[in-house]
Every structure is written in structure tokens, then in C-alpha cells.
Design a protein around this nucleic acid. Structure first.
Length: 770
DNA sequence: GAGTTTGAAACT
DNA sequence: CAGTTTCAAACTC
């Protein structure tokens, strides 16, 4: 890892350095470029971010966590370039960055230790560093975030910088209020937020880069440079100011606080950003795949600036955006259309649009494969799906690519929304609607109009394949992308995987009469609320991770306690918990006391505690059985985390994932949402579990990730964490895991434990309360 | 691709 | 809370 990265970094750095922007920045910022090889490494290490996708449930509203960003994290490995840059810049700040990184590392370690309280460790990382990073990243991130629905969040951010920075990486930070909508994730409270903030400015700037549409954008482009100045300013300023509190200390502080009340204000943020960065970097590296490259190029052309990086970032963002993003994207596209009327035409806009359209088109073709390599980001937005990006990528890749592609526009559109987040959201929704409505226009080529179905932009490929096939394919790969095939539920019930996961139906979905679209946001939210009212945990990740694994795993010892458990437990009677019918099995976790299953043979862990040894049939278990359990478990864990990767051994994704996860799990926990990816359920693709050969490459990381659980984590989760400690019973009902003692000690449980799904999101805070 | 099985979700 | 129905995924052929 390191070595290659370094090399890349160095190269990339050199490139950046060459770029006018870079120079400009350098001149502006006090920061001095370091050549921080080590830094880069640190970043990588940092890449915690897991994907979490968390949907903020309306209820929960993301507290802090909503760190959608996490998704981005995936990218990490690639990031190197950026990271390097960042690193440089950061380093300029007194090595704050390094500190940060280290902090993260530490945090991760801490997490491993699992102090529930510590979870925040990451947060603790260091506000400063964050700032620094922000400053550095801002531009990129801004684009990012902006693009993402999440951006909405920031209502408050008074200070542009903060907001942006936050938005980008930290979205959550902006304020508790901020709701990030992870792309896919429902924006529960979107509108509210809209507020104001200078976001717009930032957004516009950032977006502008990306987006051509908005008139503002045009300026924005200019702004890019300005960014370097403004943002840049924000950049340098952010760096300087932020640290110093210059720009809007308050905001930054507030936001931070908001997000992480418990934690120190800025701290938490950093990680995300970092992750994002990484993602971005990774994306960049990978880049190619995503539209981004194209876009970036275009962007650059237009901008003429070195925005390349930014563009890359953007592209990356896009990649990350995917699903939900798609929605947004589509929206964005629509928006363009809409804007066309008004805005689009705008100087930039026009071009942008065209470009976009062209891009989109291009993208479409692109999809197919191109990028599978990197997709890292892609899934992120959503749930688990996103998470699991499997090697297969092929298809997934397509999705990703698509999404990524799509995302661009959307992002753009989103950015457009000049004003508040609300507007953005609305616009998005509108756009989405529009999209549905009018596929024709712009870009949409990709997008399906199909009203009912999803917004799916289905790639052609997807469409080709029957839903089932798709599923199989996808699933097989991973569930990275969840798609549903609902016919009667209108995708407004938990029957719908997408809905359950807190994401809008999109691409691959084959649903009919789907209401789970941005267009029907109100309906979706209302429905969600109803469901939540009935069962607060309804949207909580089904699989709760415990940190336990981490610890133990860390060692490798096989024993990891069950890291995760299904929230409610299963009720299987005929499947022996050996098939995906079983949610526990599907989630890669062992059955627990909560399960009422009969004849449990869950390979991941039998309910009784009896050792899993049974061998259950692991359907997939590759290895054979015996070791099986342990191995499986380990694998499981690995898979889970790695899953996406699992298929791909060390693909960057995998790395990313690893990295990513960290941040997520802990931090992000969105309230309920599911993780995007995982969260949705946190399920992992079942099959994969077995395979794992790899024994946990990174258990620690995982652990770290988990550790973070942040505050958000419901007690339950936290409880889990403390491996040794036992699980605290969560207030929630359900599932609290039994006392550690049990877990830890009882073999039976252990068996179950292993897997950790990190489902990202833990529960929504809501649940516990119930 | 169609049909069956399964178990969660929803309903009563 | 338990029983039944509905639903869509998982699975089989």
C-alpha cells in the first residue's frame, strides 16, 4: 500500500504542484507543502471512513453522524494523491494534519480498545487538523458535498468555509440540523435546513466548478480560482482562519458542537473529511472511471484552472453519490432543464449543461465497465449496497459508473440550488420529478423516466437483465446496490429493500408504482414516520455490530465475540438459518438469544450459544467446514468489512472500505438509518461470507471503526462495543446483547459474534428510547 | 423465466 | 400479544 501510494503521491504531488492552483494556494496559504510521504500514509491509515450510509431517519435525524461522507472514505487508497497534497498543505499547518492522522490512528486504536466513550476518539482528533484539512479539501469537498444531497444540511453554516468544509466532509457538522442526505438516503428534514448559510456561496462556488448550470456557478467557476482564493481563501483562510477561528470560529465550533455535542467541536469532523478526501483522492486516482475524469477535464477546460483536482474530487463525489445521488442527479439534470428555463442558459450553465449532457451520454457508455476499478465510492451513498462493491463490479461498476455519471449532473443541479439547502432539496426533488417527468431533456438519456420504477437510471445493461438477474448478479457480487422489485408495496413499506434501507429507488430497481422517489419525498417521509412511529427501530440497521470483534479480532484470535447481531433476531423455521431467508445469516451474523429460530444452524453462530461448530452448512463456506466456524467467522468479519473487496482482494476498494469503515461505524451513525449501505441493513451479501479466504486483513480497522460509535450509537451499540464489558443492554429493547460476560465468555455467543457488520448506522437514536 | 418457498412486515 | 395475511426476496426448477 504505502509504497505505491507514495509513488503515486509523489507523482501526483508534483502534478499538483505544477498546477497553478496549487501554486496559488501555496502563495496564499502559509502552509508549506511537505512532501509527506508519511503523511500520505497516515491518511491512508486514516481512511476510516466507512461507508455508512446512513439515512438519517427523520426521527433521528442524524445527529452527528450523519456523515455520509463516510462513503467517500472508501476511496482511500487512491487518495494518496490528494492526501499527499493535503498532507502537504496540512503539514504546512504545523503538521496538524499529521497529528490528525495520528490521532485517527490513535483513535482507531482507541476504538479498538473500545472505550465506548472514547469512540469519539476520532473526533478528538483535532479540530485543527480538521480545519486544515478542510481548508485544503474545501474546494473539493465542497463540490462533493454540494453535489450530494447532503449538502443540504448545512443550513446554518454561517461561515462559508465551515459550512463548506463541513459539508463536504463533515456534513454533519454543519449542525445537527443539517441533515445530510446522503445521496441516497432520504433527507428527512431536508427542507428545514435549507437555510441559509453561506452555503450558497460556497455551494455556488464549489458547485460552480462542477456545475455549470447555475448562473452562480459561472461565477463559481471563476470562483474556483477564487476558491483558491475564496475557498481558497477558505482554503488558506480556512486553514489559517479556521484554525485560528478566523473565519467563523463560531460556526465551525458550533457546527462541530452540534454534531458532536459530546465531543469536541471540530474533532469529529476531521475524520470524515479525511475520509472524503481519501475518497476523493482515491477517486481521482481511480478516476478515470468515473465520469469525473471527463468532467474533470471539461471542468478544467472551462475553468482552465488546475481545478483538475477539484474536478476529480467532484467526480469522486459523484462516484460516491450514486444511488441516492442518482436521484439527485437526475434531479440535477432536471434541474438543469428547469434551470434551462431560467438558469441553465446562464453562460456557464449552458455549457455545463451541454457538457453534462454529453458527459452523461458519455458516461452512459462509460458505465460499462469502465470503472469498475474504482467504484469505491459509489455505493457509498446508499446502504450496504454501496458498501459492498464487489469485485464484480462489472455490473456494479456499471451502476457505479452510471451513478457516478449521473451524479455529476445531479450534483451540479444540486449545487445549483443557490439558495438554501431546502431549495436544493426541493430542487432535487423537483429535478427528480422532472427527471421522471421528462427524461428527454438533457442528459437524462440515461435516466429512465419510468415513473414508477425508479428513477433508476437504469443503465441499459441493468434494464436488459431482468431484475432477478440483476439481483443475482448484484447480489452475488454484493449487495452493494440494492434494488427492489416491489410490485404492490409501492416501495413504501419495509418490504421494499430500498425503502427499508432508507434510500430511494433508483437504477436497477424493477419496482412498480414506486413512490420511493425523490419526487414523492413527502410521501416517503410521511410513510417513514408512520413506520417509525410504529417501530422506532424499523429503519435501524438490522444488524448491530459490536465492537467486540474488533478487540479480539485484533488479535486474530478467532474468538472474536460475536461482533454483530441481528437486532431482532430471526424467526426461521425451515431454513435453519442457513439461507438468506434468515436475516441473521443474510447479515452475516450469528443468531442470538433474540432469535426464535428453530433448528438453527447459522454458520455465523448458532443461537444457543452452542458453538457454531456445527458446521452448518455453510452454504458457501468455502473452506470446509471445520475450521470453518472460526475461519468463517473471521472471514465473515473480513468479508463484511471487506466484503466488497472480498471479492477483490485488495482492491483499492477493499482498502478503502477498510479505512472507511472506521469512521463510519463509529461516527456516523446516523440515527437510524441504515446505512446506506449497510445500513440498510447492514446486510452483507450473504454468499460472500463464506468465501473469505482472507482472514481478516484488517480487523483492527474494523474495530476502530466500530469503536467510534459515536455518541449516536445507541447504547446498544455502544454496549456492544465494549467487548469486554458487555453489552449494555440497550435501552432499546431489543436486542441488546447480553452482557458481555455472556458474549465474551459464552462460547455460544461468540460463535455468533464474529461478524461484524458494521452496519453502520446504528440505530437511530430513536430506537433505544423506545 | 416461471414458479415455489420462506420469513419478515403488515394487518386484524 | 397472537394469529393471519401480505409481500417480496430467496430459491428451485
Amino acid at each position: 500500500m504505502d509504497t505505491p501510494e507514495k509513488t503515486q503521491i509523489t507523482t501526483s504531488l508534483s502534478k499538483f504542484e505544477d498546477s497553478p492552483i496549487f501554486n496559488y494556494i501555496n502563495s496564499l496559504s502559509p502552509i508549506k507543502p511537505l512532501k509527506s510521504i508519511h503523511i500520505t500514509q497516515t491518511f491512508q491509515s486514516l481512511s476510516f471512513a466507512s461507508v455508512q450510509s446512513i439515512f438519517t431517519s427523520p426521527h433521528v435525524s442524524s445527529h452527528k453522524e450523519s456523515r455520509f461522507l463516510r462513503r467517500h472514505n472508501y476511496s482511500d487508497p487512491l487518495k494518496s494523491e490528494f492526501s499527499s497534497e493535503n498532507g502537504n498543505k496540512v503539514s504546512s499547518d504545523e503538521g496538524a494534519a499529521l497529528d490528525v492522522v495520528q490521532l485517527y490512528d490513535n483513535s482507531s486504536e482507541l476504538q479498538e480498545n473500545f472505550d465506548p466513550g472514547v469512540s469519539i476518539g476520532e473526533v478528538s482528533v483535532g479540530p485543527r487538523s480538521e480545519h486544515l484539512k478542510f481548508a485544503l479539501e474545501l474546494p473539493q469537498r465542497i463540490k462533493y458535498d454540494c453535489g450530494s444531497p447532503e449538502c443540504d444540511a448545512t443550513p446554518r453554516c454561517g461561515p462559508q468555509i465551515d459550512c463548506t468544509s463541513e459539508l463536504a466532509g463533515v456534513s454533519q457538522k454543519c449542525s445537527p440540523e443539517c441533515k445530510v442526505h446522503p445521496q441516497g438516503i432520504y433527507q428527512t428534514e431536508q427542507k428545514e435546513e435549507a437555510s441559509d448559510c453561506d452555503w450558497e456561496n460556497l455551494m455556488s462556488d464549489a458547485t460552480g466548478l462542477l456545475i455549470f448550470n447555475s448562473p452562480i456557478d459561472t461565477k463559481a467557476f471563476k470562483g474556483l480560482r477564487q476558491k483558491s482564493v475564496d475557498l481558497g481563501a477558505s482554503f488558506s483562510a480556512s486553514v489559517d482562519d479556521v484554525h485560528k477561528g478566523g473565519i467563523d470560529p463560531v460556526d465551525s465550533g458550533e457546527q462541530h458542537e452540534m454534531e458532536y455535542p459530546s465531543t469536541q467541536p471540530g474533532e469529529t469532523i476531521v475524520p470524515k473529511e479525511i475520509n472524503q478526501f481519501r475518497d476523493n483522492l482515491a477517486a481521482n486516482n481511480n478516476s478515470n472511471k468515473c465520469m469525473t475524469s471527463n468532467l474533470s477535464e471539461e471542468m478544467e477546460n472551462e475553468v482552465g484552472i488546475s481545478t483538475g483536482v477539484v474536478s476529480k474530487a467532484v467526480s469522486i463525489l459523484h462516484c460516491g453519490m450514486r444511488r441516492r445521488c442518482l436521484d439527485f442527479e437526475t434531479v440535477g439534470a432536471h434541474r438543469k432543464k428547469l434551470s434551462n428555463g431560467s438558469n441553465s442558459s446562464t453562460s456557464v450553465g449552458g455549457q455545463s449543461d451541454e457538457k453534462i449532457a454529453s458527459k452523461d451520454k458519455q458516461l452512459v457508455p462509460f458505465k460499462p465497465g469502465s470503472d469498475s476499478s474504482r467504484r469505491v465510492l459509489p455505493g457509498i451513498g446508499l446502504h450496504l449496497n454501496a458498501l459492498a462493491i464487489t469485485s464484480k463490479d462489472t455490473k456494479n461498476a456499471n451502476h457505479e459508473t452510471l451513478s457516478s455519471v449521473i451524479s455529476l449532473p445531479s450534483t451540479v443541479a444540486s449545487f445549483h440550488s443557490p439558495s438554501t439547502g431546502q431549495e436544493l432539496n426541493e430542487s432535487l426533488s423537483l429535478a427528480a420529478a422532472d427527471v421522471d417527468m421528462d427524461p428527454t431533456e438533457s442528459d437524462v438519456p440515461l435516466v429512465e423516466d419510468v415513473p414508477q420504477t425508479s428513477a433508476c437510471l437504469v443503465t441499459e445493461e441493468f434494464k436488459h437483465s431482468s431484475p432477478k438477474k440483476k439481483r443475482h448478479k448484484l447480489e452475488g457480487e454484493s449487495e452493494a446496490c440494492k434494488r427492489c422489485n416491489c410490485k404492490k408495496s409501492k416501495c413504501l413499506k419495509l418490504y421494499c429493500e430500498c425503502f427499508a434501507a432508507g434510500v430511494y429507488c433508483i437504477e436497477p430497481c424493477s419496482c412498480q408504482d414506486c413512490f420511493n422517489k425523490p419526487i414523492h419525498e413527502d410521501t416517503v417521509l410521511a410513510t417513514r414516520k408512520q413506520i417509525e412511529s410504529r417501530n422506532p427501530l424499523a429503519f435501524a440497521p438490522k444488524v448491530i455490530r459490536s465492537s467486540e470483534t474488533a478487540i479480539e479480532i485484533g488479535d486474530e484470535s478467532s474468538k472474536t465475540p460475536a461482533s454483530a447481531r441481528h437486532k431482532r433476531g430471526c424467526n426461521c423455521k425451515k431454513s435453519s438459518c442457513l439461507k438468506k431467508y434468515c436475516e441473521c445469516y443474510q447479515g452475516g451474523v450469528g443468531c442470538s438469544v433474540n432469535c426464535r429460530c428453530e433448528g438453527c444452524k447459522n454458520a455465523f453462530g448458532i443461537k444457543d450459544g452452542s458453538a457454531p461448530t456445527e458446521k452448518e452448512a455453510e452454504p458457501e463456506d468455502e473452506t470446509g467446514g471445520e475450521n470453518s466456524i472460526i475461519l468463517q467467522k473471521t472471514e465473515m468479519q473480513n468479508n463484511e468489512e471487506q466484503n466488497p473487496n472480498s471479492a477483490l482482494p485488495m482492491t483499492p476498494l477493499a482498502l478503502c472500505r477498510q479505512l472507511l469503515q472506521l469512521p463510519f461505524s463509529s461516527k456516523t451513525k446516523p440515527p437510524r438509518s441504515f446505512l446506506s449501505v449497510g445500513s440498510s441493513s447492514g446486510f452483507y451479501p450473504g454468499p460472500k461470507y463464506g468465501k473469505p479466504n482472507i482472514l481478516r486483513p484488517r480487523p483492527k480497522l474494523e474495530t476502530q471503526v466500530q469503536a467510534p460509535h459515536d455518541d449516536d450509537m445507541p447504547e446498544i451499540l455502544r454496549g456492544n462495543f465494549s467487548p469486554s464489558t458487555g453489552i449494555k443492554t440497550s435501552p432499546n429493547s431489543k436486542r441488546v446483547s447480553p452482557p458481555h460476560s455472556i458474549l465474551g465468555s459464552s462460547p455460544g455467543r461468540r460463535s455468533g459474534r464474529k461478524l461484524i457488520l458494521q452496519s453502520i448506522p446504528s440505530f437511530p437514536s430513536l430506537t433505544p428510547q423506545h
